[in-house]
Design a protein around this nucleic acid. Structure first.
Lengths: 119, 119
DNA sequence: TTTAAATGATACCTTATGGTTTCATATGGA
DNA sequence: TCCATATGAAACCATAAGGTATCATTTAAA
């Protein structure tokens, strides 16, 4: 059997992380946070959408375990959390062999040749 | 500047690929296709949703350059296309240093200590 | 040629998603 | 204490997304 969307516990679920990464604004936020921790307001200043919208994105990122939030006084510091990204990276690693190995390259070449008339 | 969602040409755009990966059913389809090429019907047999729904997923996967489709007679063979996945993997690679290096581990430890009272 | 099989396409429905506006709350400073 | 600042939260909107049902089209096979 493959997948089944279920989460046999243990490591963090993939779905919230993949969901979070699906939006380009959220991916950009992650890039900003990879350079420095930022308050909600600081992040919002980088975009043209409202602070409320940015706040929503931050919640989704937090649900995906891609960032952690740390209250400091009346501010909330948003910090990149690598572990969430790692789980996604690990999922992708499975496919490494499909492009990284010479065997794969060969298979590709054969396959291409085999279906010249298609596509 | 960071991101900006724009695509300076050259390599395939990330958005369609990330979008495609956001759905658990589509990720499962990719896993199936990593084992063998499949017709639309064969893929549909693996799920409980209708063939039409599966077909839509396949279109999204194709738009994300994650699969290629090859007509053969009245069938259409769906094949995993590693290159689309690679672009996503490359995007993620940027974050490797945030969990893979010992420096990062140190930074994490310090950061954790620094915000014990939070969270 | 007639029919069944495999797929494509379209219309329609419900819920999720990304955004905005507006109002409430908490906290640092004068 | 009083006020400005930083967020949080809720209501509301338009559009995207995932599904279904139904009908058209293409191709293998009897």
């Amino acid at each position: 059997m493959i997948g089944t969307h279920s989460n046999p516990d243990a490591m963090p679920p993939l779905q919230p992380a993949f969901r979070a990464l699906a939006d380009p604004t959220r991916r950009d936020i992650l890039l900003y946070l990879s350079r420095e921790d930022m308050t909600v307001g600081q992040v919002a200043d980088r975009f043209e959408i409202t602070r409320a919208a940015v706040k929503k994105h931050l919640v989704v990122l937090e649900e995906g375990n891609l960032i952690s939030v740390h209250p400091r006084g009346r501010e909330r510091i948003n910090r990149l959390q690598p572990l969430g990204l790692k789980s996604v990276s690990d999922w992708l690693k499975y496919f490494d062999r499909f492009w990284d190995s010479k065997l794969s390259a060969l298979q590709q070449a054969v396959a291409e040749e085999e279906s010249k008339k298609d596509d």
